[in-house]
């Protein structure tokens, strides 16, 4: 179990001034710039849970993960991971966790991948039997065989990410931190990685904390999400819940024979709703309506259209988590 209680992190940097003059000025000034990256956050994560941790750039995601993994020390508050304070007992904590940073490999750049695993086996004191068993499993779900003899430096991004994930799992960690594990990957590899994460969670019952910009990751993997914005957690709950709350929006895309009719109809007046609950965009011969399904029914929109012109095709889309998060970022909760 992970406990995060009232944790804040403040970064103090020397103040920088713009321009060449500013650089000279900075040389003689001693002004400090304080930045509260994480502001009094609290949450708990139970064993076996898979949690999505999302937020915009600079919202404090990575800072939180880095505190939970023990890389940086919180300014205030307490973190406990399975009874260990990570930044106090780093090495003990490290034995129990697996970490993948999508942006940067944790592997030794100049070693062949196969040797990397041999060394990790020694470092984490994995016995021969477990090692064989786990390597077989990881090979199955991540398909490492083809590049096992290559140097880490020469791996493609997708291969490297799979290798990193495998390396983080070799010692069967109780907690797995994945910081943007699918960044820059193609769809096939993304799928492989997602499936591997799910299988591992099912098999070993390990906790997974996942940060990502790709919300499909979250939808496929996580039941619970935490949303952080400007250092504060603004949502902690199930995915379904937030979808209910924000998921009233529907998008209807209609291909029309004669697009000009759309402009002639004053929908807002017909349905008596504001632009907030009913809006549309035209792109070529396609019009996309964005409606609040509680205020306007899908069928009413369509029947209004069908009388006026030929409808070639209709597509209705539920809002996905991405749209919701966008709404929250912009408007707040």
């Amino acid at each position: 179990m992970i406990k995060v209680e009232g944790v804040s992190k403040e970064f103090v940097n020397a103040k920088k001034y713009p321009g060449l003059k500013g650089a000279v000025k900075g040389l003689f000034s001693n002004e400090k710039e304080r930045k509260l990256a994480v502001n009094d956050i609290s949450f708990e994560i139970a064993d076996g849970e898979m949690v999505g941790y999302i937020g915009g750039n600079g919202a404090g995601k990575s800072t939180t993960i880095k505190m939970m993994t023990g890389i940086i020390v919180p300014t205030s508050g307490i973190i406990e991971v399975d009874g260990i304070v990570p930044y106090k007992n780093r090495m003990q904590n490290a034995q129990n966790i697996g970490v993948v940073f999508g942006q940067r490999t944790q592997l030794w750049w100049n070693l062949p991948l196969g040797e990397t695993f041999t060394i990790l086996k020694e470092i984490y004191k994995v016995n021969d039997k477990d090692f064989k068993k786990r390597m077989k499993f990881l090979n199955e779900v991540l398909d490492l065989g083809k590049f096992m003899n290559n140097t880490v430096r020469t791996l493609s991004l997708g291969q490297r990410m799979r290798a990193d994930l495998a390396a983080s799992l070799l010692h069967n960690p109780k907690t797995l931190y994945l910081d943007e594990p699918t960044i820059g990957l193609d769809l096939v590899v993304k799928d492989k990685i997602r499936n591997a994460i799910k299988e591992i969670n099912a098999k070993y019952h390990s906790k997974v904390i996942l940060t990502t910009h790709d919300l499909t990751d979250i939808e496929e993997i996580c039941h619970r999400i935490l949303i952080i914005d400007k250092g504060t957690i603004i949502y902690d709950g199930t995915l379904e819940n937030i979808k209910d709350k924000y998921g009233k929006t529907r998008m209807i895309s209609v291909d029309l024979h004669d697009i000009s009719v759309v402009k002639k109809i004053n929908f807002n007046k017909i349905f008596n709703v504001s632009k907030k609950d009913f809006n549309y965009q035209i792109d070529g011969k396609t019009v996309t309506f964005i409606i609040n399904k509680d205020k306007v029914s899908v069928s009413a929109v369509l029947s209004n259209l069908m009388g006026k012109t030929d409808v070639k095709d209709i597509r209705i889309k539920e809002t996905d988590i991405g749209d919701i998060v966008k709404q929250i970022y912009i408007a707040g909760i």
Binding site: I71, M91, I97, R104, I123, Y124
Partner: peptide
Amino acid sequence: NGEFDRYLLRPIP
């Protein structure tokens, strides 16, 4: 560049 991160993620000094 934050490369030191990885030293803090292994159970060795």
